[in-house]
């Protein structure tokens, strides 16, 4: 079995909805039928065969060769197997994933990993705003799984996150971890304004002091923390970081006391 490969022939003429092209939804479908799947979102009505050259036969292992910011909803709702994008992805990559691995070897647009519940999403480049965050009207953002951004993330990363782990390695925009319900957000490389704004519970782990915090965060000292040791070791073991992030006794700020106030922002002293 060879990886089912979709090679981009030319820049798409419209935004594409790639949500039908997941391991589950392509299982048992012949290649000529795959080519007929409608993925266009406008009057162009593009089909898979118009945009991609399709090769290979293993739907558990899908590769998109050549990326574009117009490739939206890559691997949406995937439950298992692997999807790899060699290039950029558009909006909502890996949205509502429940399992499997999605790798984007490039940049991802807004709402990457939105509402993820499981699996592993790794973006080697940068991610847009609202990483892991809910769409308008949804109550919770990321709900499980692991989301790694090797580059930067935009604003509102981990908004309304409820469970799981998000790691951003080269800095995030403003309001990272805003309205978090629970879960863990790791940001190395600095955050923008007011991380943890209106967070209820959850942990925001930073590699340095945040440049600003909402005044409704309070200092909670820096006792020795076994949790810091366990998460540091986990991040290194998972290949997410190379060095410990927090150290033995990180500084803690608790908040956001404008809401429940049971969240924390931790960073090394």
């Amino acid at each position: 079995m060879k990886a089912l490969t979709f090679t981009l022939v030319a820049e798409p003429p419209e935004r594409l909805d790639l949500s039908p092209l997941t391991p589950e939804r392509l299982a048992g479908i012949e290649r000529r039928d795959i080519e007929k799947i409608q993925i266009g979102t406008s009057k162009h009505g593009s089909k898979v065969g118009d945009i991609f050259r399709v090769a290979g036969n293993d739907p558990r292992d899908i590769v998109f060769e050549g990326g574009s910011a117009r490739l939206d909803r890559v691997a949406e709702a995937m439950r298992g197997g692997s999807v790899r994008v060699v290039g950029n992805a558009g909006a909502q990559a890996g949205r509502a994933m429940r399992g499997g691995t999605l790798t984007i070897e490039g940049n991802a647009g807004p709402h990457a990993g939105s509402g993820m519940r499981g699996g592993r999403l790794e973006i080697t480049g940068n991610a847009g705003d609202h990483l892991g965050a809910p769409l308008a009207g949804e109550l919770a953002g990321m709900n499980g799984g692991v989301l790694i951004v090797r580059g930067k993330a935009g604003a509102f990363a981990a908004d309304r996150m409820r469970r799981g782990l998000i790691a951003v390695l080269k800095g995030s925009g403003d309001n990272a971890g805003s309205r978090m319900i629970a879960g863990t957000l790791v940001v190395a490389g600095g955050t923008g304004e007011m991380p943890g704004y209106l967070m209820r519970r959850g942990s925001i782990l930073l590699d340095r002091a945040p440049k600003s915090l909402s005044p409704s965060f309070v200092e909670c000292g820096a006792p020795e923390s076994v949790f810091a040791a366990v998460i540091d070791r986990h991040l290194i073991a998972e290949g997410i970081l190379k060095r410990p992030l927090l150290g033995k006794a990180p500084q803690k700020f608790g908040g956001d006391n404008a809401v429940l106030g049971m969240g924390e922002v931790l960073f090394p002293r």
């Binding site: 629970a182 519970r201 076994v226």
Partner: peptide, 24 residues
């Protein structure tokens, strides 16, 4: 009520505040 639940790599931990920090 001040305990914190954490799931790290498929393992579930509780962090319980105590007088020298936290009991994990």
């Amino acid at each position: 009520g001040w305990q914190i639940s954490k799931k790290i790599g498929g393992r579930h931990f509780w962090r319980v505040p105590v007088m020298d920090g936290e009991f994990l």
